[in-house]
């Protein structure tokens, strides 16, 4: 019995010490959101190769995936992330504000608002589009089941919501009350609110729930690749939102682990030709204009608006739409 106590106490202490050490040896941790799993699996291999070629050092890149909000919270609570690659700027702002691990002006440190790849929100329907869905209008029709995740927990869902909001604002010429009624009717058609974008995609594809999935463009293309063109179709709405998933160094963590140069190179390499090509292969729109021209045929032209155009900025969008008691909560509270 005494032997057991000693052993377990020893193991516990060993565990405490070892985990820190294992991470300290030229390893960087990328804390990312849900739909980027495939992207970073490919990119990490590329970057490890690139770094070894450049410096001769062998490094490890560790990954963690989850809902964008959940991942931001993990960083705030101390997950030793060296870089974060999340779904929206607000989540990185939250890390900066709540923990001080990232400077407030983080978005100025990398090109293009710190977003190496872009995306938009599209509609995924079943083959031959049995419900005849062409645009956002069709989502509020009675009998159309719409699948989208919960904007309170999912970053992608917030883009979905704001894309529909932008459409409604344009349709009703800026009348916010009517736009709100539009969203209320849309969410009445939602039978499941998953906590993350990937959960919604799986329910739509694997479980056969719903007539239309509001989805990241890259997620929709990926679904086509995984499940075949013969089962689903992508519908490009008349207008949609320009999604800019941001990346940044978690400065204080990277400095502490002594990997700032690797972390910085890791993010900068995303903007390189190789990085951009990988983004394209994983259905993200490249931010590099030259690469964008090269692959223009792969990405349908969509009229895009930005968050700032329809909601002021992320802070305001968060406060007005998604905070407790905000417009999104009102949709469900007065039924």
């Amino acid at each position: 019995m005494k032997f057991n106590t000693g052993l377990t106490a020893g193991l516990l202490i060993l565990g405490l010490v070892c985990t820190r050490h294992a991470l300290a040896e030229q390893t960087i941790l990328n804390v990312s959101y849900d739909p980027t799993r495939e992207l970073y699996e490919e990119y990490n291999r590329e970057f490890i190769r690139h770094w070894q070629e450049k410096t001769g050092e062998k490094i490890t890149v560790r990954q963690s995936h989850g809902g964008s909000g959940k991942q931001a919270r993990a960083v705030i609570d101390g997950i030793p992330a060296d870089v974060v690659t999340l779904a929206l700027a607000h989540d990185i702002d939250a890390i900066s504000k709540q923990s001080g691990l990232i400077p407030a002006d983080w978005q100025q440190h990398l090109p293009n608002n710190s977003s190496p790849y872009l995306s938009t929100i599209v509609l995924l329907v079943r083959k031959d589009n049995p419900k005849g869905i062409r645009d956002w209008d069709d989502l509020i029709k009675p009998g159309v089941a719409v699948i989208t995740p919960n904007p309170k927990t999912s970053g992608g869902a917030r883009w979905n919501y704001l894309a529909a909001w932008g459409f409604a604002l344009k349709k009703y010429e800026g009348d916010e009350a009517k736009a709100q009624a539009f969203l209320t009717r849309l969410y009445r058609n939602v039978p499941i609110l998953d906590s993350g974008a990937r959960g919604s995609t799986i329910n739509f594809i694997q479980r056969g729930i719903g007539d239309v999935l509001i989805s990241w463009e890259n997620e929709a293309f990926l679904a086509l690749r995984e499940y075949g063109q013969e089962k689903f179709e992508i519908i490009i709405p008349s207008i949609s939102i320009l999604a800019e998933p941001p990346v940044t160094i978690v400065d204080k963590n990277a400095d502490k682990h002594g990997v700032r140069n690797i972390a910085r190179a890791y993010l900068e390499h995303l903007y390189s030709k190789a990085g951009q090509e990988i983004a394209v292969r994983n259905f993200y729109r490249p931010s590099d204009p030259e690469i964008a021209r090269k692959y223009a045929h792969q990405f349908p032209t969509v009229n895009l608006f930005t968050v700032n155009e329809v909601a002021g900025n992320w802070q305001l969008a968060q406060h007005i739409h998604f905070s407790d008691g905000g417009l999104f909560d009102k949709i469900y509270e007065y039924q």
Binding site: G69, K70, R73, A94, Q98, T153, F322, S323
Partner: peptide, 11 residues
């Protein structure tokens, strides 16, 4: 789930 939801909004 509501506890998780609140957590993820930093509440």
């Amino acid at each position: 789930l509501l506890i998780i939801t609140k957590l993820e909004q930093y509440d």
